[in-house]
Computed example of a mutant assay.
Amino acid sequence: MENATLAGATAADWLWSPPKMRWRRVYPGRIDQVRQARDFAETLFKGAPCVDVVALAVSELAANAVRHTLSGERVDGWFGLEVVYDNPAYIAVTDMGGHGIPTVLPEGYGSPYNESGRGLRTLYELAQVFGVHGNSTHGHTVWVHLDANRKLEADLEAFVRSVS
């Protein structure tokens, strides 16, 4: 927005006007840093309908980076978080690579009582678009586009019905 158009604009118009608001942060590759990343994203999306979906996405992607890649294995490990406040919202986590390719498991995979293995599938179902780029040598970026107007409650009810 140029200065000439600010005369009749609200503070919200200015705050959320183009260019898109984009943040990047790097976190040590420790499990306690997943909460830090999620808290950061929740602060950015506070008051938005999608805040819980964003929090879930950041938690899942960051936890996977720490649990399944060199990001969590190396003393100097790290993961990166990129967030774009827009519609769709963009959430991406970059890891240090090391083990295979992040994979969305097939629908209905395993027991619904398994403690792990369905997180990326859940994000895949919640996302407008889901993607992975990179490789095991140089690291992966796993990203999602999320509808900024979509609340988690309704989605969770539908998801629970689908796995029951």
Results as ranks from 00 to 15, higher is better:
Val51Ser: 11
Pro102Thr: 10
Asp13Trp: 00
Thr137Ile: 03
Val34Met: 06
Tyr90Glu: 08
Gly29Pro: 05
Lys46Ile: 05
Gly29Glu: 10
Val58Gly: 04
Arg161His: 13
Asn64Glu: 08
Leu126Gly: 02
Arg150Gln: 12
Arg150Val: 01
Trp16Ile: 02
Glu107Ile: 10
His133Pro: 01
Val142Ile: 14
Val51Leu: 04
His138Cys: 02
Leu146Tyr: 09
Arg67Phe: 00
Ala62Val: 03
Val163Gln: 12
Asp52Trp: 03
Glu2Leu: 14
Lys46Thr: 11
Leu123Ile: 08
Ile101Trp: 05
Ala7Met: 13
Leu152Ala: 12
Trp14Ile: 05
Phe130Trp: 14
Asp52Cys: 06
Asn64Leu: 11
Gln128Pro: 02
Tyr85His: 09
Gln36Met: 09
Arg74Gln: 14
Asn135Pro: 07
Arg22Phe: 11
Val83His: 01
Gly110Ile: 04
Thr5Tyr: 02
Val58Gln: 06
Pro28Asn: 10
Ala63Ser: 15
Asp39Gly: 13
Leu123Phe: 07
Ala63Cys: 11
Arg118Gln: 13
Ala154Cys: 02
Trp23Arg: 10
Ala55Pro: 08
His99Gln: 08
Asp155Phe: 10
Ala158His: 04
Phe159Gly: 00
Arg25Asp: 06
Glu153Gln: 07
Trp14Glu: 03
Phe45Met: 12
Ile31Asn: 02
Thr141Tyr: 06
Arg25Phe: 07
Glu42Ser: 14
Arg74Met: 12
Thr141Trp: 10
Asp52His: 13
Leu123Tyr: 10
Arg118Lys: 12
Pro112Gly: 05
Asn114Arg: 13
Tyr90Gly: 01
Glu82Asn: 06
Gln36Trp: 06
Gly117Phe: 00
Ser164Ile: 12
Gln128Phe: 02
Ala148Arg: 08
Phe45Pro: 00
Val144Thr: 08
Gly134Ile: 01
Ser136Lys: 09
His138Asn: 14
Asp76Phe: 01
Ala48Trp: 10
Val75Trp: 03
His145Met: 14
Tyr90Cys: 05
Leu120Gly: 08
Leu152Gln: 10
Lys20Gly: 06
Pro88Thr: 10
Asp76Arg: 10
Asn135Met: 10
Tyr85Leu: 14
Thr43Pro: 00
Asp155Arg: 11
Thr122Ile: 15
Trp143Gln: 03
Leu56Cys: 06
Tyr90Thr: 04
Ala37Arg: 04
Ala154Lys: 09
Gly139Ser: 09
Ala11Trp: 00
Glu42Val: 09
Arg30Ser: 10
Glu125Asn: 08
Thr137Trp: 00
Ala92Tyr: 04
Arg74Ala: 15
Ser116His: 14
Ala12Thr: 03
Tyr27Ala: 06
Tyr113Trp: 01
Gln36Phe: 02
Ala92Leu: 02
Ser136Cys: 04
Ser164Asp: 15
Glu42Gly: 07
Trp14Ala: 03
Arg121Gly: 12
Asp155Ser: 15
Thr10Tyr: 00
Val142Trp: 00
Tyr124Ile: 11
Glu125Met: 09
Phe79Met: 04
Ser162Tyr: 00
Ala154Gln: 15
Asn135Ser: 14
Leu126Tyr: 03
Val93Thr: 03
Ala7Pro: 01
Asp39Phe: 01
